[in-house]
Simulated assay, not measured.
Amino acid sequence: METTKTEIGIKKENRKAVVEMLKQILADEHVLYIKTRNAHWNIEGIDFHSKHVFLEEQYNKLETVIDEVAERIRMLGFYAPGTMKQFLETSQLNEEGPEQNNTKGFFSILLEDHDTIIKFIRKNISENAEERNDDGTADFIIALMQKHEQMAWMMRATLKTF
């Protein structure tokens, strides 16, 4: 739903299409945030402390991303979804946890989710810039993709020891 008339040089139908893509990202970010919190709370093993701290850093980054995505939706003149029901209905991620509450179990699942988000964003970059005349959102999601690439790299590097 559009909030107010927003005249920013992008046609309403293009803004609406961009917002639908951003809603997908917002839903995925929320599910990943909850799964990262779960890992932070429940991880076990000899590396507990370092991974507990690492996961806290990760979910804090995701919390910032969530706010930025919701605000981008508002900048484009639409309301951001805000319920878990909406997020679960929209997200391409699932809520499944690991078989074991250790680094390998949690990081494998979280890494897969980061990779899913990275692929989705990469697929939408040129569509937003070229087809929808929204270079601002294209730049915005490129920065999001880079954040996820960094988080995924750190998890991938950690998993190399298993």
Rank of each mutant, 00 (worst) to 15 (best):
E2C: 01
T3G: 09
K5N: 11
E7Y: 11
E7V: 03
G9W: 03
I10T: 00
K12T: 09
E13L: 12
N14F: 09
N14Q: 06
N14D: 15
K16M: 12
A17H: 10
V19S: 06
E20P: 06
M21P: 00
M21Y: 13
M21W: 03
L22W: 04
L22Q: 01
K23L: 01
Q24D: 11
I25Y: 08
A27E: 10
D28G: 12
E29K: 03
E29R: 03
L32N: 05
I34M: 12
I34K: 12
K35R: 13
T36I: 04
R37L: 15
N38T: 14
A39W: 00
A39F: 01
A39T: 00
W41G: 02
I43V: 14
E44I: 06
E44V: 06
G45T: 11
H49A: 11
H49E: 08
H49Q: 08
S50I: 08
H52F: 12
F54W: 10
L55D: 05
L55C: 08
E56F: 05
E56H: 10
Q58M: 10
Y59D: 04
Y59T: 01
K61E: 11
K61A: 13
L62S: 07
L62M: 04
E63C: 03
T64N: 15
V65G: 03
I66G: 01
D67S: 12
E68S: 10
E68A: 11
V69D: 05
V69P: 11
E71C: 08
R72H: 07
R74N: 06
R74P: 09
R74M: 10
M75I: 00
L76E: 03
F78W: 09
Y79I: 04
Y79W: 04
P81C: 00
G82Q: 13
T83K: 07
T83D: 09
M84V: 10
Q86T: 01
F87Q: 00
F87Y: 15
T90G: 05
Q92V: 04
Q92F: 09
Q92K: 15
G97Y: 06
G97T: 03
P98D: 04
Q100A: 13
N101I: 01
N101Q: 14
N102I: 08
N102W: 09
T103G: 00
F106G: 02
I109C: 01
L110N: 04
L111S: 11
E112T: 06
E112R: 07
E112Q: 11
D113R: 11
I117A: 08
I118R: 08
K123S: 09
K123V: 01
N124Q: 14
I125D: 06
S126D: 15
S126V: 14
N128P: 05
N128L: 14
A129L: 11
A129E: 06
E130W: 02
N133M: 14
D134N: 13
D134K: 09
T137H: 05
A138V: 08
A138K: 03
D139W: 06
F140K: 04
F140S: 02
F140H: 08
A143P: 00
A143C: 00
L144K: 12
Q146P: 10
Q146N: 15
K147F: 12
H148Y: 14
Q150C: 00
Q150P: 00
Q150E: 12
M151A: 15
A152H: 04
A152Y: 05
M154I: 03
M154R: 02
T158R: 09
T158F: 06
K160Y: 07
K160H: 13
K160F: 07
T161Y: 13
T161M: 06
F162P: 02
